[in-house]
């Protein structure tokens, strides 16, 4: 928890923030609309006597009244998939359309890939990439359980992602759900911060810059890139955006955010970031009873 004190200047009601970080997360799932509608899923849960609660901002997100969502019929049928509430956000910001070509640059274990595919009605193409073979095998298992046919899986370093296997030049949209110091998932894994170090944060920030740069290059002009992390560290969020705004043809754009959020910061530890980065959004655990999150939407201009 001590690590988090560096964010005291950024966070309102810091006590409530710390208290929220110590609570465990509710069991939240996303309904996989490729296999079943929300109504049918609810009916099946009713039959099994499993309670649920809606999330107003997204009808496919349900909080279940059980700590074992895996022991239900809707789970067995691939109608639901465990996905923390705030992590359902970036795919909706990406807003992929049926028939499009979408890259999920850091995709494993595939929660967001599956949501993207569902938003596209399992049409078009979602390239799910990751560089970790073990995590990719979890992704493949999940994608097949959920019945996705529009997902192609690649194992590449996203910093040098090559479109060669696909025979086209650019994606319509790309999600970069970057590897990060994961401070925001402390509610799921309380030991997350045990190995925290500034040098790790700085190292991972370098990887994030490389991945986001390549993602922008691999996306067509006029296309959308969404950058998200589950960390509070500005080094891994706003600083990464600031870096790519200088080197790549893109701009930060606003997006509607149904969850309570705060703007991206433009000053941190004596550094100043581009003013447009205020359009990025920070999500704190005490505001929506979720994990911590960061999300930015970019438009490719060149």
């Amino acid at each position: 928890m001590e690590v988090l004190s560096r964010y005291e200047p950024l966070v309102d009601d810091f006590e409530a923030f710390l208290a929220a970080c110590e609570r465990s997360l509710p069991a939240v799932v996303r309904v996989n609309t490729i296999k079943a509608g929300v109504e049918r899923t609810k009916r099946a849960l009713d039959e099994e006597g499993v309670g649920y609660e809606d999330r107003k901002w997204n009808e496919t997100v349900l909080e279940l009244d059980t700590d074992k969502p895996g022991n239900t019929w809707p789970y067995f049928h691939g109608w639901i998939h465990g996905q923390e509430e705030v992590s359902s956000l970036p795919a909706t910001v990406l807003d992929p359309q049926p028939g499009e070509r979408v890259l999920d640059a850091c995709a494993a274990p595939g929660g967001k890939t599956a949501q993207i595919a569902a938003l596209m009605d399992d049409t078009g193409l979602v390239v799910a990439n990751d560089n970790n073979l073990g995590r990719l095998s979890a992704l493949r298992f999940n994608a097949e359980r959920l019945g996705l046919t529009d997902v192609a899986v690649t194992r590449q370093d996203a910093r040098n992602f090559s479109l060669k296997p696909f025979g086209f030049e650019a994606f319509d949209r790309t999600l970069v759900d970057a590897p990060c110091s994961c401070e925001g998932i402390i509610r799921k894994r309380p030991d997350t911060l045990d190995e925290w170090s500034l040098s790790h944060v700085e190292g991972v920030s370098g990887v994030q810059k490389g991945i986001l740069k390549r993602a922008i290059q691999a996306t067509r002009s006029g296309g959308t890139v969404v950058y998200s992390t589950c960390t509070f560290a500005p080094e891994e969020n706003e600083a990464v955006l600031d870096h790519v705004l200088e080197s790549e043809d893109c701009r930060v754009v606003e997006f509607d955010t149904p969850l309570e959020s705060r703007p991206g910061v433009t000053e941190w530890n004596g550094e100043e970031y581009d003013r447009s980065i205020r359009k990025a959004r920070r999500y704190y655990p005490h505001h929506n009873d979720t994990g911590g999150f960061f999300c930015a939407k970019l438009e490719v201009t060149g």
Binding site: R140, A143, T149, D150, V151, A152, V153
Partner: peptide
């Protein structure tokens, strides 16, 4: 998709 394709997974 182009054939052959050398990737980890293609659909199910």
């Amino acid at each position: 998709h182009p054939s052959p394709t050398e990737i980890e997974g293609l659909g199910m």
